Amino acid sequence: MISRRRFLSLCAASAAAGAGALLIGPSFALARVESERRFVFIIQRGAADGLNIVVPYAEPAYAALRGPLAIDVANATKLNGTFALHPALQQTAQLYAARQALFVHAVATPYRDRSHFDGQNVLETGGLAPYQMRDGWLNRLVTMLPKREAEAIAFAPTVPAALRGRAGVTSYAPSGLPGASDDLLMRVSELYAHDAQLGPLWNEALTARGMAGRASPRQDPASVGKLAGGFLARADGPRIAMIETNGWDTHSAQNARLAAQLKGLDALLAALRDALGVAWMQTTVVVATEFGRTAAANGTGGTDHGTGAVAMLVGGAVAGGRVLAQWPGLRPGDLYEGRDLRPSASLDALVASAAAETFGLDPQRTAATLFPKTNAGARFGERLIELGRLSGLIGSPLV
């Protein structure tokens, strides 16, 4: 049972935070582990178009395939002699210049069909097929690390699949509604005091609410990044986070919609960096989507569901300033099933390597724990960049 003194202290710390409610915009989940390193996973739900995020401007077939959707390299940030960054990612480009961002192109999970729900399930659970595994790879990562007072906290109406599993998870979702009165919260606490299931959950919810403090209840990407960074920056805060972003399914009017999505992602990353402060230098952020989009534009000013995509690693802990790509090409014979960017890098391997290097874990054990069903990509008949070739992603820990 939570004491009245403990209850009042939580209420005082969170009076302006508001009650939990459904998030309309990005939502995120957090987990506490005993480390000064932070690890953040940002999922782009809807299949983000990697070919227009990290643009292969030197690829001869790119402009012809994309037509009016092709990004004008004159407005983009050239990363090297082959790739450029979408012009909406201005602050991300600054992170790249500061060697705090890197990109892995032509990357994919083992999933090879084009269902959002199935693709996201494979991305979050780390299986070979949809619904093959019941828990998520991010939850399994939590179990590999020393246990703290609270193992995980989800800032979402429901816990994302990547964080479901054996490690305990509570949830919190900021709301724009007026906050509940202290008297009401105290009455609920008394009501749940002797309930073996609801009592502990309510106490954890009040703890999360107190940690949020006077954070803004706004749900735009920058506010979400600021709130997440505030939690992660605390000495007693979580060390693992998941942030959900939606709206990446650009079947029509792609140029304007993708630019708006990327502007939001850019603002989220910048706000996360600023809120983390000095802890940013201990932070690794992985940004990934369930699959990419078709190499060619469709007839409605957009692109359809594809395969190969691009993943980002961002953060002060990242050994950035690089684009990693075993480029497959975009000529008709190069495309997967004649329509998609062919994957040449394993997203499973990228995630496992980044997580292992962030927390100083054995890379093979980490890969086996997070992605136990993965078999080096050989089953697809594809030459994927694997774990051993994705080392050196994260810099040495600061001392």
Rank of each mutant, 00 (worst) to 15 (best):
V285E: 08
T284R: 10
A241N: 11
P332W: 06
L347S: 05
V310N: 13
A297K: 15
D348R: 08
V287Y: 08
Q254P: 04
W248K: 07
S344A: 11
G360C: 06
I243W: 12
R257N: 09
L330E: 15
A260T: 09
T250E: 13
N246W: 10
T300Q: 15
L269P: 01
G316K: 02
A309E: 14
T294D: 12
N255R: 14
M281I: 00
A355R: 11
R293W: 07
A319D: 15
T245L: 14
D266N: 12
A253P: 00
V278C: 01
A345Q: 07
D236R: 02
A297H: 12
A345Y: 03
G360Y: 11
V285S: 07
W327R: 03
G316V: 01
D274S: 08
V318W: 09
R239F: 04
F359K: 07
L276N: 06
L265K: 11
V287H: 09
A352C: 06
D274I: 00
A253I: 03
A260S: 15
T300N: 15
A270W: 13
L258N: 05
D334M: 00
L258V: 02
R273P: 04
G308R: 07
A356V: 01
E244R: 09
G292T: 03
G315P: 06
G360H: 09
E244G: 13
N255G: 10
R339V: 08
P328T: 05
A354W: 08
N255E: 14
A275M: 03
R342K: 15
A317W: 07
Q364Y: 09
D304I: 00
G360M: 09
A270Y: 14
L276M: 09
M281F: 12
A297R: 15
A352K: 08
N246T: 02
V323Y: 11
A317F: 04
V323F: 08
G277R: 06
P238C: 04
P238G: 05
V285N: 07
T358I: 04
D249K: 03
V318H: 10
A325N: 14
G306N: 01
V318S: 09
L341T: 02
Q254D: 07
A253F: 13
